[in-house]
Design a protein around this nucleic acid. Sequence first.
DNA 1: TAAGATTGAATCGTCAATCTTA
DNA 2: TAAGATTGACGATTCAATCTTA
Lengths: 143, 143
Amino acid sequence: MSLPSEKVIDAWIRLMRAPQAVLAAMEARVKAAELPPLTWYDALWALERAAPKGLRPADLEREMLLAQYGVSRLLDRLESAGYIERRPVPEDKRGQTIMLTPAGRATRRRIWPVYARAIQETIGSRLTDQEATELTRLLGKLG
Amino acid sequence: MSLPSEKVIDAWIRLMRAPQAVLAAMEARVKAAELPPLTWYDALWALERAAPKGLRPADLEREMLLAQYGVSRLLDRLESAGYIERRPVPEDKRGQTIMLTPAGRATRRRIWPVYARAIQETIGSRLTDQEATELTRLLGKLG
DNA sequence: TAAGATTGAATCGTCAATCTTA
DNA sequence: TAAGATTGACGATTCAATCTTA
């Protein structure tokens, strides 16, 4: 296994910095609007897409790239905010199904326009659609 | 201000996921080698480049995209590990200069080969140099 | 009043251990 | 023994307040 080229190292540096800056800018806006963080949005949106079946915690684990305990703690917070419900699953008594509540759905919808504007300002206004597509392709090779 | 296109939204999703996955993979390797995290490496490397003059905490703040208190706490940890020294600056009694110690320098050098291999495996082996350059350019537009 | 930097309290993330059911 | 999920203890991050010097 060889060492990385200069160009690869440059890409690494940018890859660690740029997304962090973009995320921080977006979180700042959302927070200024007194809305919950991106992690909450991600979970709520995944659950909304999966409605009405709901998701198992392990599904969220895969979708959100979180550890098992991370999902557990995130669900604790969403549950005490009243945004999700934990339901037992009949076929497997170890497991549970996570369901979005109406309040969770409403909040997800309230957050989206704020994120959408932030995405447009931090990404959309700086890249052409063609560049965005190319960026998606390149990042996809790293996943 | 218009809403983001589908292509921009796709780029956003990948931009939030791919770097997270890359970072997690790298941290896992470094941790397996019982070496300190990327944040420590970043700070040590910035200080090594700035030697022998050292850096002010505000410089690290800018370079590492950290908040003032974040730098303060990181320096606490680096100091108790013996990797840096805080020195008063004569011209401004509020301020300080951060200096890398020989132990800090040695540790930075011990970490690098491990990161270098991880960078090569997670990025270098998946992108051509040309793609890496294009990725750097696109991410640069977001910074 | 503001700039450089730190800190107590609270929140969030991580590790290792645990509990329950398969 | 292993899979799904949670938890206590601990470390890291964040917020708001503070301290010191300019």
